[in-house]
Every structure is written in structure tokens, then in C-alpha cells.
Amino acid sequence: MASRTEDFDSRFAGLDQWSDADFLMALWEGQMRAVASVGPVLEDLATAADGIARRLGGGGRLVYVGAGTSGTVAWQDAKELGGTFGWPEEHTIVMLAGGLQSAPNEFNSAEDDIDLAAREISQHNISDKDAIIAIAASGMTPYTLRALELARERGAFTVGICNNPDGSLLKIAESGVFLDSSPEVVAGSTRMGAGTAQKAALNILSTLVMNKLGRLFDNLMVGMRAENIKLRDRAVRIVARIASCNEEQAKDALVKSDFDIRPAVLVVKGHTPARAQKILGLSNGNLRAALEYRD
């Protein structure tokens, strides 16, 4: 049985002959429907985030699994965790069927390769310390399903995100998230509605996870890596705001702290860089807890 992401919607019959304005309006409405599909599953995302944060807080790794559009959406979310939140790359794994550099025909056919999924789960030594986010629009992609099955057998915390209520992904995962974004305006083109819904859901999920791990203070990215001029300027403003100091003091503290925002805030508060790092270590990297730390 085909998934709902493959359905033909009669409302869009003759789409290829519509005016540009009507064509774009239909696509825009499809995108709005996709984003709206995330609202009803916020509780599911909160449950998933809690499970993920528990594993990562214990030293585990965050593993993204997907194929095709779903895989590239997952890769994008994973790629941004380091720069935005300072999440270490060695604690992030992306299992993308065929890999980003594969030829189009290899990229598409790899989603059926269950042996590849098994090899990669084994090579990465997935264990009960890790958390897996598996994504598939249909919820039935063989590569993704097999990886999720094996990860759960190994004791990993598993999250399945799909756009089909009958997707096997929802049944296999410990925490299932159904995004009701279908049908697609262009039938079967899950790079449109399903992809948008997945991106929005992952944005929300990973941001909540990072917050649970102390990577935010108020609404500020205190784990951010200040790797260019714009980000260094932002880091100065963040430190100045949190530490209630002027920008000159903030910049001086950042220089002493290798432009790491969290220890820089503690340096402004009177700690040496070494002491600041020690306090953060004792506080699991959580700046709010570190500011409240007492010997």
C-alpha cells in the first residue's frame, strides 16, 4: 500500500496549466500546511527531546538516520549543532544512505540497502548510550527502518519521524512523531511539504535538546562558536548582557577565554579562566548552574 505522501490530490488537477499566481499560491499553502503539522505533535517532540537529552547528558552520541530528502534534512540539522550550540562533532553521527557525495543514481538506490544500514550501525558501534533520530517521509524506507531496528536492539533511545500515519517507523521507534503534512501539491515530491515539516520539527527538537543540555542562557546561544567577525561581535554582546558589563570588559574576558562565551562570563564575574573551566565542568557545562555554584 502506498503511503499518503504518494497520494494524488484532485484539487491540483491541471496544475501545470495554472497561472503563475495560482501555482505559487498552491505551493505556499502546501508549505503553510507543512509547518502547521508540527503544532499538534509538540508534546511528542518534548518526550523525544527528554529521552535524547538523558542519553547525551550521560556522554552518548546523537545519531541522525535518513535517505533522500529526509537524509539531507537530517544532515543539515546535525551540521548546525556545532556552530550554533558548540555541540562536539565527535558526539554527532549522520547515517545518510549513499552519502552526500554519491552520484544521483547511487543516492536514490541506497535507500533500499538494508545491509548498508546494518554495516554502519556496527561500524559506529551504536549502543545503549546513544540516541537515534530516524526520518523518512513514508515511514517505510528500508535503509532507515533497518538502522532504527538494529539501534533499538542495541538499547539506543530511538525517535522516528515520518509523514505517514501508517509508517512502520512510528511502530519501531520508542518515541514516534507523525507529521500530518500530506498530500503534496506536486504528488510524491516530499522535498516540498514533508521536507519542510521535517526541517521545522528537527529545528524544534534539537533546540530543545540543546537547551536541556545547558547550551542556552535566557534566549542566548552561550555555546555558540565565535568563528568569524560577525559571531565574535555577537559573543561580545552576549557576554556583556549576561555579565552586566561593558563591551570592552566582555571582549577582554573573551580573549582570555579563547572566545568561549560561558567561561568568559565567569571571568567577568572574577574567576580566572582555569577556575571558570573547572566550575563549568562541575556544572555539566550549564552556565546558569555555574553562576550559582558555590564551593
Rank of each mutant, 00 (worst) to 15 (best):
Ala2Ser: 15
Thr5Phe: 05
Phe12Met: 11
Leu15Gln: 04
Gln17Tyr: 10
Trp18Tyr: 01
Asp20Ala: 14
Ala21Ser: 12
Asp22Gly: 07
Leu27Asp: 06
Arg33Thr: 09
Val35Pro: 00
Ser37Ile: 07
Val38Arg: 01
Ala46Glu: 08
Thr47Ser: 11
Asp50Arg: 13
Gly58Ile: 07
Val63His: 01
Ala67Gln: 08
Gly68Lys: 05
Ser70Val: 03
Gly71Val: 09
Thr72Pro: 11
Gly82Ile: 07
Gly82Tyr: 10
Glu89Leu: 08
Glu90Asn: 14
Met95Cys: 12
Ala97Asn: 11
Ala97Glu: 12
Gly98His: 03
Gly99Glu: 05
Pro104Ile: 06
Phe107Asn: 06
Asp112Gly: 05
Asp113Tyr: 01
Asp115Tyr: 13
Leu116Lys: 08
Ser122Met: 09
His124Gly: 00
Asn125Asp: 12
Ile126Arg: 09
Asp130Ala: 04
Asp130Tyr: 01
Leu150Asp: 03
Glu153Pro: 02
Ile161Ala: 03
Pro165Trp: 10
Leu169His: 11
Ile172Gly: 04
Leu179Ser: 01
Ala187Glu: 09
Gly188Phe: 09
Arg191Tyr: 00
Ala194Arg: 03
Ser206Arg: 00
Ser206Met: 07
Thr207Cys: 07
Thr207Gly: 00
Met210Ala: 03
Gly223Met: 03
Gly223Ile: 02
Ala226Thr: 01
Glu227Gln: 04
Glu227Ala: 05
Lys230Leu: 00
Arg232Phe: 09
Ala235Ser: 04
Val236Met: 05
Val236Leu: 02
Ala240Trp: 11
Ile242His: 14
Ala243Asn: 11
Glu248Pro: 01
Gln249Val: 13
Val255Phe: 04
Ser257Val: 02
Asp258Tyr: 00
Leu266Thr: 08
Gly270Lys: 01
His271Asp: 14
Pro273Cys: 04
Pro273Lys: 01
Ala274Lys: 14
Ala274Phe: 10
Arg275Leu: 14
Gln277Tyr: 14
Lys278Asp: 05
Lys278Phe: 12
Leu280Asp: 05
Gly281Trp: 11
Gly285Met: 13
Ala289Asn: 11
Ala290Glu: 03
